[in-house]
Design a binder for these strands. Structure first.
Length: 414
RNA sequence: GCGAUCGUAGCUCAGCUGGUUAGAGCGCUGGUUUGUGGUACCAGAGGUCGCGGGUUCAAGCCCCGUCGGUCGCCCCA
């Protein structure tokens, strides 16, 4: 069995196909984000605990139980980031990024939540993230959703994923709807599941996506957000949905889709799938016009989303293996010394090249084959003395001599 | 925090109702070929059966505990 120290629960070591899938997702995101003019931003993995505590506020469970928080050697309370948005909002304020006007930002990297691992859920997990800060216009929501849609298309998972869209309205709408929901559920308290009765005091909006069958009929009769939407909020949502239609982004209305936190306004959305067990959300986000203010800044409109890299990586087709083009097989001490220089030359010429270090010739040839190289360059004392190398096309077994000074050119042509 | 399920070689797994020296495939090393791979054949290395206790003449197999993995609940910023 395994020896040595174990991996920390909920972390992952990735190699081979798994690592390739992961980076395929990140690379695709990086390409798509440029198409939409989103600049890359880098923010710390660690923040003062206050940054997340203030942004999360109401849901005590999240803050107390699920953050990786600790005191550093100086006694400061710090937390490994459980999400991107709060840290980016903090940077926006502390670094004076208002000077840049409307910011379209993209980032990706590790996040940490102290949770019980299960399918598509880890303690160190990774997300892609996109934010538009400083734009109150529905066009920002549309652009962000169009980018998400294109990303999922280019990853080849769009057919397995549905965009669920809702509006939470403005602050007044949200408060009124919430009050109506609480009153309604309070009325039906006795028929609710045990879990939902708990939620009623802690986080009543969550009752709307309860998994308990007995809650379904009650949820179905709950007050709908649409009855509480003001004219402005309604117009905003219509602008978003119309924009999506024009951009050719398919969406479905999901009136029960909510966000637990108070700073979310207007658009809320999730791209969901049924391919990932209990973790159906592959990409989610919304408008968080209240967040920067909650962190002590000026009222600043913002909207964004994040997507789970692991979840996407599980869904994409296996990316093509990255074969190396040339396998260099030196034989003997002299040839090995010369091969180092030849390999460097081939690589500078832009040819990917694997240099065999160990084993007898048979072993080295076997490795050359396993590397997927198109050609093996065999370099022994005879060849070296003549200033040549044997170039073998591995697929056909055909072999010929090539002068060393013409090697790069000859290999490129093949 | 709760529940279910699993834990045998580096990996994937087999091991019959408890019964001698615990097996296979892949991978690894060496050989058939002292300078020729992908196919084939031969040989070899590699295992505290997660860990601890118990029952038994006898435990990989049964019981208890514990640790770990997986899946789900809670939670989901």
């Amino acid at each position: 069995m395994a020896r040595g120290p174990a991996r920390v629960r909920g972390t992952q070591d990735m190699i081979g196909e798994q690592a390739a899938r992961f980076h395929h997702v990140v690379d695709t995101f990086d390409r798509v984000r440029r198409l939409y003019g989103f600049g890359r931003v880098e923010v710390p993995v660690i923040e003062h605990t206050e940054v997340f505590a203030r942004s999360l506020g109401e849901t005590t469970d999240v803050v107390s139980k699920e953050m990786y928080s600790f005191a550093d050697r100086g006694g400061d309370g710090v937390t490994l980031r459980p999400e991107f948005t709060a840290g980016i909002a903090r940077a926006y304020l502390s670094e004076g990024w208002q000077q840049h006007g409307v910011l379209k930002l993209a980032t990706s990297g590790p996040l940490f939540r102290y949770e019980r691992p299960q399918k598509g859920r880890y303690r160190q997990f990774h997300q892609l993230d996109a934010e538009v800060i400083g734009a109150a216009e529905p066009a920002a929501d549309v652009e962000l959703l169009a980018m998400a849609d294109q990303l999922l298309r280019e990853l080849g998972v769009a057919d397995d994923v549905t965009l669920k869209l809702n509006t939470l309205g403005d602050a007044a709408t949200r408060d009124a709807w919430r009050a109506a929901l609480v009153a309604y559920f309070e009325e039906h308290r006795d028929s609710l599941s045990h879990e939902s009765r708990e939620r009623l005091t802690r986080n009543p909006l969550r009752i709307l996506d309860s998994k308990e069958p007995q809650d379904r009929p009650i949820v179905a009769g709950a007050p709908a957000i649409d009855d509480y939407l003001g004219d402005e909020a309604r117009a905003f949502f219509e602008a978003v949905t119309h924009g999506l239609d024009v951009a050719g982004v398919r969406w479905e209305r999901e009136p029960m889709l909510v966000r637990g936190l108070d700073y979310y306004r207007h658009t809320a959305f999730e791209f969901v799938t049924d391919r990932l067990g209990a973790q159906g959300t592959v990409l989610g986000g919304g408008r968080y016009d209240g967040l920067i203010e909650a962190l002590g800044g000026p009222p600043t409109p913002a909207v964004g989303w994040a997507a789970g890299i692991e979840r996407l990586a599980m869904m994409v087709d296996a990316p093509a293996v990255e074969w190396v083009r040339v396998a260099l097989v030196p034989l003997g001490a002299q040839a090995e010394a010369a091969a180092t220089g030849i390999a460097a030359g081939l690589r500078r010429a832009g040819l990917s090249c694997d240099l065999a270090y160990k084993g007898n010739m048979k072993k080295r040839m076997a490795r050359a084959d396993a590397s997927g190289a198109a050609v093996a360059v065999i370099l022994g004392d005879d060849e070296l003395a003549r200033g040549e190398a044997a170039v073998k096309t591995l697929a056909t077994g055909e072999q010929r001599s090539v002068a060393l000074d013409q090697l790069a050119e000859a290999l490129r042509a093949r």
